[in-house]
Design a protein around this nucleic acid. Structure first.
Lengths: 203, 203
DNA sequence: GAGGGTTCCATATCGCTGTTATATACCGAC
DNA sequence: GTCGGTATATAACAGCGATATGGAACCCTC
C-alpha cells in the first residue's frame, strides 16, 4: 500500500503537477479513502517527502548506470548530462526534489548526490587534471559543479532554450569550469566531447 | 490600494512564507475584505505575479546602483554578488521570483535581467577579456553566468554553507568561468578580488 | 445642488483543500 | 470462537480561492 501510494503520487505529480496532488485525488487513484493516506503517512507533507526520496533513489540509480572510465573529466561530464536528462525527463519530480520547499528540518535525502560529486572532483584532482591546491574550500568545487548542474536544469525547465542547446551549453560550461580548475584546455575539450554525444533514452 | 496590497503581500511573503499568503490574510492585512483583492487583481495568481514584478523592480534598482568601472570583469563580479545578496536579504521574494512556478504563459518580467547579463558579457568581450569567437551560442555565456548566479543563491538558501563562504565561492566560480572564457588568470584574479569585499548592507 | 452611471467593496456562499473523530471491518493469537 | 489491535470508511471541521449579489461612494452632467 505504501509503495502503491508513492507510485500514484509520483504519477499524479508527473502528469498533472503539484496542485493536483491532493488527498482525495491520491486516495481515488489507488481506490481507497483519504484515511489510507493518513494511516501510512502522517500528512500530505510526508507523502511529498516520500516522493522526493523516491526521486533521489531513481536519480541515484541512473547515475549508477554510468560506467566509470579512466578519464575522470569525461565521467564528470557524463554525470552532469545524465543529471540534466533526468530533470528533463520528469520536470515535476525534479521540482519536487530540488525546487519546491522542503519541510523545515527535513533531513535531506539528496546529500548522497553531493558526496558523489565530491568523489568525482577528487578523482579529477588525483588524476592531475584539476589543481588541488587551488580549491578555495574543502568542498568548494563540488558545490560549484552542483551549482552548474542545477542552474542548467532550471534553465531548461524554464524552456528558454531547446533541450539540445541546453545539453550543448552544459557541456560547454563543464569545459569552461574544467579549464578554470586547472585542466589543460585541449585535454578538457577532448574529455567533454567524448561524453557529449550519447543522449540517453528517456525513462 | 493596489500598491498597498502588493506591499502587504510582499510583507506577508517575507515574514510568513508563501503558504501564509492567502486572500483573507491579505485582505485583513490592509483592513479590507477579500473582494478588494479580486477587484484590483483578478486572482491570487495575479497578486503573486504583481509581487514578482515588484521583486524584479527592486533587484533592477539594486543592480542600477552599482557603478560601472573600466574593468568589465570586476563589474560582472559585483553584479553577481549583489544578485546573491538580494536573494539572501529576502529569500521568500527570491523564491517567488525565480523558484516557485510562474503561471503558464506568464510574460516573464525577469527578461530584463538577462539582457543586462548579455550586455555585461559583451563588455568583457569588447574589452578583449573574453574570447568572442569561443562562445558556443549567441547568448551562451550569459546563460552560463546566470546559471552560476541562480545556482549559488539556491545553494545559499538551502543553507548548506554560511553566507560568507557562499560569497567567497561565488567569487571563485566567477574567476574560474572568466578564465574558462579566455581571460588571463592573473587579470581575472585581480578583477574578482577588487569587487569581492564590499558586502552591501542588507535592505 | 440633483440625478444617473460607474467603480469599489462587504456579505454570504460554493466547492475545494488538509486533517481528524468516530465507527466499522478485518485478521492473527490464544 | 473470541479477543485485541490495525486498517479503513464515513462524516465532519476549519480554512482556502473564487463568485454572486447588493449597497455605498464617487464623478460627471445638467
Amino acid at each position: 500500500m505504501r509503495t502503491a501510494l508513492i507510485d500514484a503520487a509520483a504519477r499524479i505529480l508527473a502528469t498533472d503537477g503539484p496542485r493536483a496532488l491532493s488527498t482525495r485525488r491520491l486516495a481515488a487513484e489507488v481506490g481507497a479513502s483519504t484515511m489510507a493516506v493518513y494511516t501510512h503517512f502522517g500528512s500530505m507533507d510526508q507523502v511529498r517527502h516520500a516522493v522526493r526520496t523516491e526521486g533521489f533513489a531513481r536519480l541515484d540509480a541512473a547515475l549508477d548506470r554510468i560506467p566509470r572510465t579512466d578519464d575522470p573529466v569525461a565521467d564528470l561530464t557524463a554525470d552532469a548530462l545524465v543529471y540534466l536528462d533526468a530533470g528533463l525527463a520528469d520536470p515535476e519530480m525534479y521540482r519536487a526534489m530540488f525546487v519546491d520547499r522542503p519541510p523545515p528540518a527535513d533531513t535531506d535525502p539528496g546529500s548522497g548526490l553531493f558526496q558523489r560529486l565530491v568523489a568525482s572532483v577528487r578523482r579529477c584532482i588525483d588524476a592531475g587534471r584539476f589543481d588541488a591546491a587551488d580549491d578555495p574550500l574543502p568542498l568548494g568545487w563540488a558545490a560549484e559543479i552542483w551549482t552548474m548542474q542545477h542552474g542548467m536544469v532550471v534553465l531548461a525547465l524554464g524552456d528558454v532554450l531547446p533541450t539540445d542547446q541546453i545539453r550543448f551549453l552544459l557541456a560547454d560550461m563543464t569545459y569552461r569550469l574544467a579549464v578554470g580548475f586547472g585542466d589543460d584546455p585541449t585535454a578538457a575539450h577532448r574529455s567533454v566531447r567524448k561524453r557529449r554525444r550519447p543522449r540517453r533514452t528517456k525513462r
